[in-house]
Design a protein around this nucleic acid. Structure first.
Lengths: 205, 205
DNA sequence: ATTTGATAGTTTTGTTAAAAAAGTCAGGAC
DNA sequence: GTCCTGACTTTTTTAACAAAACTATCAAAT
Protein backbone atom coordinates (compact mmCIF):
# COMPACT_ATOMS: atom_id res chain seq x y z
CA UNK A 1 0.00 0.00 0.00
CA UNK A 2 2.87 2.32 0.82
CA UNK A 3 4.64 1.19 -2.29
CA UNK A 4 1.51 1.99 -4.22
CA UNK A 5 1.36 5.48 -2.80
CA UNK A 6 5.02 5.99 -3.62
CA UNK A 7 4.26 5.07 -7.19
CA UNK A 8 1.35 7.45 -7.19
CA UNK A 9 3.50 10.24 -5.85
CA UNK A 10 6.16 9.60 -8.44
CA UNK A 11 3.61 9.74 -11.23
CA UNK A 12 2.08 12.88 -9.77
CA UNK A 13 5.53 14.39 -9.76
CA UNK A 14 6.03 13.46 -13.42
CA UNK A 15 2.75 15.10 -14.29
CA UNK A 16 3.70 18.23 -12.42
CA UNK A 17 7.03 18.41 -14.23
CA UNK A 18 5.47 18.01 -17.65
CA UNK A 19 2.76 20.54 -16.80
CA UNK A 20 5.34 22.99 -15.49
CA UNK A 21 7.23 22.83 -18.78
CA UNK A 22 4.09 23.37 -20.84
CA UNK A 23 2.82 26.22 -18.68
CA UNK A 24 6.27 27.78 -18.62
CA UNK A 25 6.63 27.74 -22.40
CA UNK A 26 3.11 28.34 -23.61
CA UNK A 27 1.14 29.72 -20.66
CA UNK A 28 -2.05 28.41 -19.16
CA UNK A 29 -4.57 29.01 -21.91
CA UNK A 30 -2.31 27.81 -24.72
CA UNK A 31 -1.70 24.51 -22.97
CA UNK A 32 -4.23 21.71 -23.39
CA UNK A 33 -4.70 18.67 -21.24
CA UNK A 34 -4.25 16.53 -24.35
CA UNK A 35 -0.80 18.02 -24.91
CA UNK A 36 0.31 17.36 -21.36
CA UNK A 37 -0.99 13.80 -21.62
CA UNK A 38 0.78 13.45 -24.95
CA UNK A 39 4.11 14.57 -23.47
CA UNK A 40 3.78 11.81 -20.90
CA UNK A 41 2.44 9.24 -23.36
CA UNK A 42 -0.64 8.76 -21.27
CA UNK A 43 -4.30 9.33 -21.82
CA UNK A 44 -5.98 12.58 -20.90
CA UNK A 45 -8.38 10.66 -18.68
CA UNK A 46 -5.47 9.57 -16.53
CA UNK A 47 -4.63 13.17 -15.78
CA UNK A 48 -8.08 13.50 -14.33
CA UNK A 49 -7.42 10.45 -12.23
CA UNK A 50 -4.57 12.28 -10.53
CA UNK A 51 -5.88 15.84 -10.60
CA UNK A 52 -9.49 17.02 -10.37
CA UNK A 53 -9.23 19.64 -13.12
CA UNK A 54 -6.91 21.85 -15.13
CA UNK A 55 -6.81 24.79 -12.77
CA UNK A 56 -6.05 22.51 -9.83
CA UNK A 57 -3.19 21.09 -11.83
CA UNK A 58 -1.88 24.56 -12.49
CA UNK A 59 -2.29 25.45 -8.85
CA UNK A 60 -0.42 22.32 -7.82
CA UNK A 61 2.52 23.39 -9.95
CA UNK A 62 2.30 26.85 -8.50
CA UNK A 63 2.23 25.53 -4.95
CA UNK A 64 5.35 23.55 -5.68
CA UNK A 65 7.13 26.63 -6.98
CA UNK A 66 5.89 28.64 -4.04
CA UNK A 67 6.99 25.94 -1.65
CA UNK A 68 10.53 26.07 -3.05
CA UNK A 69 10.51 29.82 -2.69
CA UNK A 70 9.18 29.68 0.88
CA UNK A 71 11.85 27.15 1.74
CA UNK A 72 14.55 29.54 0.62
CA UNK A 73 13.11 32.25 2.87
CA UNK A 74 12.73 29.96 5.86
CA UNK A 75 16.26 28.63 5.58
CA UNK A 76 17.58 32.12 6.15
CA UNK A 77 15.04 33.17 8.77
CA UNK A 78 16.72 34.91 11.69
CA UNK A 79 20.20 34.45 10.24
CA UNK A 80 20.90 37.99 9.17
CA UNK A 81 23.62 40.14 10.63
CA UNK A 82 21.85 43.38 9.77
CA UNK A 83 18.69 44.82 8.32
CA UNK A 84 20.07 45.66 4.92
CA UNK A 85 21.21 42.11 4.42
CA UNK A 86 17.71 40.82 5.13
CA UNK A 87 16.05 43.22 2.71
CA UNK A 88 18.62 42.49 0.03
CA UNK A 89 18.09 38.78 0.43
CA UNK A 90 14.33 39.08 0.05
CA UNK A 91 14.55 41.26 -3.03
CA UNK A 92 17.20 39.15 -4.72
CA UNK A 93 15.44 35.89 -4.00
CA UNK A 94 12.17 37.28 -5.26
CA UNK A 95 13.87 38.56 -8.39
CA UNK A 96 15.31 35.13 -9.18
CA UNK A 97 11.94 33.53 -8.51
CA UNK A 98 10.23 35.75 -11.05
CA UNK A 99 12.96 35.56 -13.67
CA UNK A 100 13.15 31.77 -13.55
CA UNK A 101 9.41 31.30 -13.93
CA UNK A 102 8.55 34.37 -15.94
CA UNK A 103 6.32 32.80 -18.56
CA UNK A 104 4.57 30.63 -16.06
CA UNK A 105 3.03 33.75 -14.55
CA UNK A 106 1.59 34.87 -17.87
CA UNK A 107 -1.50 33.25 -16.44
CA UNK A 108 -1.90 36.21 -14.11
CA UNK A 109 -1.52 38.76 -16.85
CA UNK A 110 -3.88 37.00 -19.26
CA UNK A 111 -6.74 36.33 -16.91
CA UNK A 112 -6.20 39.53 -14.93
CA UNK A 113 -9.51 39.30 -13.10
CA UNK A 114 -11.42 36.06 -12.34
CA UNK A 115 -8.57 33.82 -11.30
CA UNK A 116 -9.29 30.74 -9.19
CA UNK A 117 -9.73 31.79 -5.59
CA UNK A 118 -7.17 29.31 -4.31
CA UNK A 119 -4.46 31.26 -6.07
CA UNK A 120 -4.78 34.09 -3.59
CA UNK A 121 -4.22 31.69 -0.76
CA UNK A 122 -0.81 30.81 -2.15
CA UNK A 123 -0.03 34.42 -2.93
CA UNK A 124 -1.02 35.18 0.65
CA UNK A 125 1.34 32.52 2.00
CA UNK A 126 4.21 33.98 0.07
CA UNK A 127 3.43 37.47 1.21
CA UNK A 128 3.07 36.37 4.82
CA UNK A 129 6.41 34.60 4.69
CA UNK A 130 8.05 37.71 3.28
CA UNK A 131 6.42 39.85 5.93
CA UNK A 132 7.44 37.47 8.67
CA UNK A 133 11.03 37.38 7.46
CA UNK A 134 11.45 41.12 7.23
CA UNK A 135 9.37 42.02 10.28
CA UNK A 136 11.52 39.65 12.31
CA UNK A 137 14.65 41.25 10.95
CA UNK A 138 13.34 44.66 11.97
CA UNK A 139 12.39 43.44 15.42
CA UNK A 140 15.85 41.98 15.87
CA UNK A 141 17.43 45.32 15.09
CA UNK A 142 15.08 47.03 17.50
CA UNK A 143 16.02 44.53 20.21
CA UNK A 144 19.68 45.06 19.47
CA UNK A 145 19.03 48.75 19.78
CA UNK A 146 20.62 49.49 16.43
CA UNK A 147 17.47 51.14 15.09
CA UNK A 148 14.79 53.15 16.78
CA UNK A 149 11.78 51.38 18.26
CA UNK A 150 8.84 51.14 15.90
CA UNK A 151 5.18 50.81 16.74
CA UNK A 152 4.44 48.09 14.22
CA UNK A 153 7.11 46.30 12.17
CA UNK A 154 4.50 44.48 10.07
CA UNK A 155 2.91 47.71 8.93
CA UNK A 156 6.29 49.00 7.84
CA UNK A 157 7.10 45.85 5.94
CA UNK A 158 3.75 45.97 4.18
CA UNK A 159 4.48 49.46 2.97
CA UNK A 160 7.90 48.34 1.85
CA UNK A 161 6.57 45.37 -0.11
CA UNK A 162 3.90 47.52 -1.74
CA UNK A 163 6.53 50.05 -2.64
CA UNK A 164 8.65 47.33 -4.23
CA UNK A 165 5.74 46.26 -6.39
CA UNK A 166 5.26 49.80 -7.55
CA UNK A 167 8.71 50.03 -9.09
CA UNK A 168 8.38 50.11 -12.85
CA UNK A 169 10.41 51.10 -15.86
CA UNK A 170 9.94 54.04 -18.17
CA UNK A 171 11.70 57.07 -16.75
CA UNK A 172 10.66 60.30 -18.38
CA UNK A 173 7.61 59.56 -20.51
CA UNK A 174 5.46 56.60 -19.53
CA UNK A 175 4.16 55.00 -22.68
CA UNK A 176 1.92 52.05 -22.05
CA UNK A 177 0.33 51.08 -18.81
CA UNK A 178 1.30 47.45 -18.51
CA UNK A 179 0.61 45.70 -15.24
CA UNK A 180 3.15 42.96 -15.79
CA UNK A 181 6.68 44.10 -16.60
CA UNK A 182 8.39 42.81 -19.70
CA UNK A 183 11.10 40.30 -19.13
CA UNK A 184 13.82 42.55 -20.48
CA UNK A 185 12.90 45.20 -17.90
CA UNK A 186 13.24 42.98 -14.85
CA UNK A 187 16.89 43.80 -14.32
CA UNK A 188 16.30 47.54 -14.47
CA UNK A 189 13.47 47.19 -11.98
CA UNK A 190 15.70 45.10 -9.77
CA UNK A 191 18.32 47.82 -9.70
CA UNK A 192 15.78 50.44 -8.76
CA UNK A 193 14.62 48.22 -5.95
CA UNK A 194 18.15 48.01 -4.64
CA UNK A 195 18.19 51.80 -4.53
CA UNK A 196 14.91 51.79 -2.65
CA UNK A 197 16.39 49.39 -0.12
CA UNK A 198 19.29 51.76 0.51
CA UNK A 199 17.01 54.65 1.30
CA UNK A 200 14.35 52.67 3.13
CA UNK A 201 16.69 50.82 5.45
CA UNK A 202 18.50 54.03 6.21
CA UNK A 203 15.16 55.62 7.01
CA UNK A 204 14.52 53.03 9.68
CA UNK A 205 17.75 53.70 11.52
CA UNK B 1 -12.77 89.00 -34.74
CA UNK B 2 -11.56 89.00 -31.18
CA UNK B 3 -15.12 89.17 -29.93
CA UNK B 4 -15.92 86.20 -32.11
CA UNK B 5 -13.02 84.23 -30.68
CA UNK B 6 -14.12 85.15 -27.18
CA UNK B 7 -17.52 83.74 -27.93
CA UNK B 8 -15.95 80.62 -29.31
CA UNK B 9 -13.81 80.21 -26.23
CA UNK B 10 -16.79 80.69 -23.95
CA UNK B 11 -18.73 78.02 -25.81
CA UNK B 12 -15.76 75.72 -25.78
CA UNK B 13 -15.60 76.22 -22.05
CA UNK B 14 -19.27 75.38 -21.67
CA UNK B 15 -18.78 72.22 -23.65
CA UNK B 16 -15.82 71.25 -21.51
CA UNK B 17 -17.85 71.79 -18.34
CA UNK B 18 -20.77 69.71 -19.53
CA UNK B 19 -18.43 66.99 -20.76
CA UNK B 20 -16.57 67.00 -17.49
CA UNK B 21 -19.77 66.38 -15.58
CA UNK B 22 -20.84 63.56 -17.88
CA UNK B 23 -17.44 61.87 -17.84
CA UNK B 24 -17.19 62.33 -14.09
CA UNK B 25 -20.52 60.69 -13.38
CA UNK B 26 -20.77 58.04 -16.06
CA UNK B 27 -17.24 57.54 -17.41
CA UNK B 28 -16.05 57.77 -20.97
CA UNK B 29 -17.77 54.83 -22.61
CA UNK B 30 -21.12 55.41 -20.88
CA UNK B 31 -21.25 58.98 -22.12
CA UNK B 32 -22.55 59.67 -25.63
CA UNK B 33 -22.07 62.74 -27.72
CA UNK B 34 -25.85 63.04 -27.97
CA UNK B 35 -26.13 63.29 -24.21
CA UNK B 36 -23.52 66.01 -23.93
CA UNK B 37 -25.20 67.92 -26.73
CA UNK B 38 -28.54 67.41 -25.02
CA UNK B 39 -27.22 68.82 -21.75
CA UNK B 40 -26.21 71.95 -23.62
CA UNK B 41 -29.35 72.08 -25.76
CA UNK B 42 -27.32 71.98 -28.89
CA UNK B 43 -26.99 69.54 -31.72
CA UNK B 44 -24.40 66.82 -31.71
CA UNK B 45 -23.03 68.16 -34.96
CA UNK B 46 -22.08 71.37 -33.22
CA UNK B 47 -19.86 69.48 -30.83
CA UNK B 48 -17.93 68.30 -33.85
CA UNK B 49 -17.63 71.88 -34.97
CA UNK B 50 -15.70 72.69 -31.79
CA UNK B 51 -13.88 69.42 -31.19
CA UNK B 52 -12.58 66.98 -33.78
CA UNK B 53 -13.81 63.85 -32.05
CA UNK B 54 -14.89 62.35 -28.76
CA UNK B 55 -11.49 61.30 -27.50
CA UNK B 56 -10.09 64.77 -28.20
CA UNK B 57 -12.94 66.21 -26.19
CA UNK B 58 -12.10 63.91 -23.32
CA UNK B 59 -8.44 64.81 -23.63
CA UNK B 60 -9.29 68.52 -23.57
CA UNK B 61 -11.11 68.05 -20.28
CA UNK B 62 -8.20 66.05 -18.96
CA UNK B 63 -5.70 68.69 -19.99
CA UNK B 64 -7.75 71.28 -18.13
CA UNK B 65 -7.74 69.17 -14.98
CA UNK B 66 -4.05 68.47 -15.39
CA UNK B 67 -3.38 72.14 -15.93
CA UNK B 68 -5.10 73.01 -12.64
CA UNK B 69 -3.07 70.36 -10.89
CA UNK B 70 0.18 71.54 -12.44
CA UNK B 71 -0.63 75.09 -11.38
CA UNK B 72 -0.94 73.99 -7.78
CA UNK B 73 2.47 72.36 -7.94
CA UNK B 74 4.12 75.33 -9.63
CA UNK B 75 2.70 77.80 -7.15
CA UNK B 76 4.57 76.07 -4.37
CA UNK B 77 7.73 75.35 -6.34
CA UNK B 78 10.81 76.21 -4.29
CA UNK B 79 8.79 77.47 -1.34
CA UNK B 80 9.35 74.62 1.06
CA UNK B 81 11.17 74.95 4.36
CA UNK B 82 12.18 71.30 4.43
CA UNK B 83 12.08 68.08 2.47
CA UNK B 84 9.29 66.47 4.39
CA UNK B 85 7.03 69.41 3.73
CA UNK B 86 7.62 69.12 -0.01
CA UNK B 87 6.87 65.41 -0.10
CA UNK B 88 3.79 65.87 2.05
CA UNK B 89 2.53 68.58 -0.24
CA UNK B 90 2.94 66.46 -3.35
CA UNK B 91 1.21 63.44 -1.84
CA UNK B 92 -1.65 65.45 -0.39
CA UNK B 93 -2.24 67.43 -3.55
CA UNK B 94 -2.16 64.29 -5.63
CA UNK B 95 -4.57 62.61 -3.26
CA UNK B 96 -7.08 65.46 -3.57
CA UNK B 97 -6.67 65.45 -7.33
CA UNK B 98 -7.59 61.76 -7.55
CA UNK B 99 -10.41 61.91 -5.01
CA UNK B 100 -12.06 64.89 -6.66
CA UNK B 101 -12.01 63.35 -10.11
CA UNK B 102 -12.20 59.70 -9.23
CA UNK B 103 -14.85 58.59 -11.70
CA UNK B 104 -13.37 60.63 -14.47
CA UNK B 105 -10.37 58.31 -14.49
CA UNK B 106 -12.51 55.23 -14.91
CA UNK B 107 -11.52 55.71 -18.51
CA UNK B 108 -8.06 54.42 -17.67
CA UNK B 109 -9.35 51.37 -15.86
CA UNK B 110 -11.87 50.47 -18.53
CA UNK B 111 -9.70 50.81 -21.57
CA UNK B 112 -6.58 49.61 -19.78
CA UNK B 113 -4.60 49.11 -22.96
CA UNK B 114 -5.13 51.03 -26.23
CA UNK B 115 -5.68 54.52 -24.91
CA UNK B 116 -5.16 57.52 -27.21
CA UNK B 117 -1.45 58.25 -27.41
CA UNK B 118 -1.90 61.90 -26.48
CA UNK B 119 -2.97 60.82 -23.01
CA UNK B 120 0.55 59.74 -22.18
CA UNK B 121 1.83 63.15 -23.08
CA UNK B 122 -0.35 64.70 -20.39
CA UNK B 123 0.51 61.97 -17.91
CA UNK B 124 4.14 62.66 -18.72
CA UNK B 125 3.73 66.39 -18.06
CA UNK B 126 2.25 65.66 -14.66
CA UNK B 127 4.95 63.24 -13.78
CA UNK B 128 7.67 65.61 -14.93
CA UNK B 129 6.21 68.41 -12.83
CA UNK B 130 6.14 66.14 -9.80
CA UNK B 131 9.69 65.06 -10.44
CA UNK B 132 10.83 68.62 -10.92
CA UNK B 133 9.16 69.76 -7.71
CA UNK B 134 10.60 67.02 -5.54
CA UNK B 135 14.01 66.86 -7.19
CA UNK B 136 14.35 70.60 -6.63
CA UNK B 137 13.39 70.16 -3.00
CA UNK B 138 16.05 67.50 -2.61
CA UNK B 139 18.67 69.62 -4.32
CA UNK B 140 17.84 72.51 -2.02
CA UNK B 141 18.43 70.37 1.01
CA UNK B 142 21.69 69.15 -0.45
CA UNK B 143 22.77 72.74 -1.04
CA UNK B 144 21.77 73.66 2.48
CA UNK B 145 23.83 70.73 3.66
CA UNK B 146 21.00 69.30 5.69
CA UNK B 147 21.07 66.01 3.84
CA UNK B 148 23.92 64.05 2.30
CA UNK B 149 24.87 64.74 -1.29
CA UNK B 150 23.17 62.44 -3.78
CA UNK B 151 24.36 61.41 -7.22
CA UNK B 152 21.04 61.93 -8.94
CA UNK B 153 17.98 63.52 -7.31
CA UNK B 154 15.75 62.69 -10.27
CA UNK B 155 16.47 58.99 -10.02
CA UNK B 156 15.57 59.05 -6.34
CA UNK B 157 12.33 60.90 -6.98
CA UNK B 158 11.38 58.42 -9.70
CA UNK B 159 11.81 55.55 -7.29
CA UNK B 160 9.77 57.43 -4.72
CA UNK B 161 6.91 58.12 -7.12
CA UNK B 162 6.89 54.50 -8.31
CA UNK B 163 6.84 53.38 -4.71
CA UNK B 164 3.87 55.63 -4.00
CA UNK B 165 1.97 54.07 -6.88
CA UNK B 166 2.64 50.64 -5.49
CA UNK B 167 0.86 51.32 -2.21
CA UNK B 168 -2.34 49.30 -2.14
CA UNK B 169 -4.81 48.05 0.40
CA UNK B 170 -5.44 44.53 1.61
CA UNK B 171 -3.09 43.70 4.44
CA UNK B 172 -2.87 39.99 5.17
CA UNK B 173 -4.62 38.19 2.32
CA UNK B 174 -4.77 39.90 -1.04
CA UNK B 175 -8.06 39.01 -2.65
CA UNK B 176 -8.50 40.49 -6.07
CA UNK B 177 -5.85 42.02 -8.23
CA UNK B 178 -7.38 45.34 -9.10
CA UNK B 179 -5.20 47.90 -10.84
CA UNK B 180 -7.33 50.86 -9.86
CA UNK B 181 -8.05 51.23 -6.15
CA UNK B 182 -11.63 51.52 -5.00
CA UNK B 183 -12.72 54.93 -3.88
CA UNK B 184 -13.31 53.85 -0.30
CA UNK B 185 -9.71 52.67 -0.08
CA UNK B 186 -8.13 55.93 -1.11
CA UNK B 187 -7.85 57.24 2.43
CA UNK B 188 -6.19 54.10 3.72
CA UNK B 189 -3.74 54.26 0.85
CA UNK B 190 -3.11 57.89 1.59
CA UNK B 191 -2.22 57.09 5.19
CA UNK B 192 0.20 54.40 4.13
CA UNK B 193 1.83 56.88 1.81
CA UNK B 194 2.33 59.28 4.67
CA UNK B 195 4.13 56.51 6.51
CA UNK B 196 6.29 55.90 3.46
CA UNK B 197 7.19 59.58 3.39
CA UNK B 198 8.34 59.45 6.99
CA UNK B 199 10.72 56.60 6.31
CA UNK B 200 11.83 57.73 2.87
CA UNK B 201 12.63 61.32 3.85
CA UNK B 202 14.49 60.10 6.90
CA UNK B 203 16.45 57.75 4.66
CA UNK B 204 17.69 60.67 2.62
CA UNK B 205 19.09 62.52 5.61
C1' DA C 1 -19.19 82.13 -38.79
C1' DT C 2 -22.55 79.11 -36.44
C1' DT C 3 -25.87 75.76 -36.37
C1' DT C 4 -28.67 71.72 -37.62
C1' DG C 5 -31.23 67.57 -39.68
C1' DA C 6 -30.25 63.95 -42.37
C1' DT C 7 -27.25 60.49 -43.32
C1' DA C 8 -22.99 57.82 -44.02
C1' DG C 9 -19.63 54.97 -41.69
C1' DT C 10 -18.01 52.50 -37.78
C1' DT C 11 -18.16 50.10 -33.38
C1' DT C 12 -20.70 47.50 -30.06
C1' DT C 13 -23.90 44.05 -28.99
C1' DG C 14 -26.41 39.86 -29.55
C1' DT C 15 -27.23 35.50 -31.99
C1' DT C 16 -26.02 31.30 -33.76
C1' DA C 17 -23.24 27.36 -35.54
C1' DA C 18 -19.04 24.92 -35.78
C1' DA C 19 -14.75 23.65 -33.66
C1' DA C 20 -11.93 22.76 -29.81
C1' DA C 21 -11.12 21.80 -25.45
C1' DA C 22 -12.55 20.34 -20.77
C1' DG C 23 -14.37 16.93 -18.18
C1' DT C 24 -16.92 12.02 -17.44
C1' DC C 25 -17.60 7.18 -17.43
C1' DA C 26 -18.12 2.24 -18.28
C1' DG C 27 -15.23 -1.09 -18.63
C1' DG C 28 -10.45 -3.50 -19.47
C1' DA C 29 -5.73 -4.97 -17.62
C1' DC C 30 -3.04 -6.11 -14.00
C1' DG D 1 -8.79 -2.86 -5.79
C1' DT D 2 -5.54 0.29 -8.38
C1' DC D 3 -4.35 2.03 -12.60
C1' DC D 4 -5.52 3.06 -17.16
C1' DT D 5 -8.04 4.01 -21.76
C1' DG D 6 -11.33 5.00 -25.74
C1' DA D 7 -15.48 6.80 -26.49
C1' DC D 8 -18.62 10.01 -25.04
C1' DT D 9 -20.92 14.36 -23.08
C1' DT D 10 -20.61 19.05 -21.66
C1' DT D 11 -18.58 23.42 -21.65
C1' DT D 12 -15.86 27.02 -23.68
C1' DT D 13 -13.82 29.40 -27.64
C1' DT D 14 -14.08 31.07 -32.23
C1' DA D 15 -16.11 32.88 -36.39
C1' DA D 16 -19.62 34.74 -38.96
C1' DC D 17 -23.17 37.71 -39.36
C1' DA D 18 -27.21 40.76 -38.54
C1' DA D 19 -29.23 44.46 -35.69
C1' DA D 20 -28.63 48.34 -32.89
C1' DA D 21 -26.11 52.15 -31.12
C1' DC D 22 -23.02 55.46 -31.66
C1' DT D 23 -19.47 58.32 -33.94
C1' DA D 24 -18.56 61.32 -37.49
C1' DT D 25 -19.66 64.01 -41.88
C1' DC D 26 -21.95 67.32 -44.85
C1' DA D 27 -25.05 70.10 -47.53
C1' DA D 28 -28.04 73.50 -46.51
C1' DA D 29 -30.15 77.16 -43.32
C1' DT D 30 -29.53 81.18 -40.30
Amino acid sequence: MNATNDQQDIKREKILEASHQRFLHYGYSKTTMNEIAGDLSMSKALLYYYFPDKSELYMAVMRKLASDYLKQLEDKFGHFTNLREAFLFQVNTHHDFIVNNYNFFDFFRLNEQNLPDTIWETVGHIRNAEIKLLANAIQSEVDKGSIQAVTNPVEIVEVFLDALHGIKVGGSVPHKKLNFPHKEHLDEIHNKRLLLIDIFVKGLK
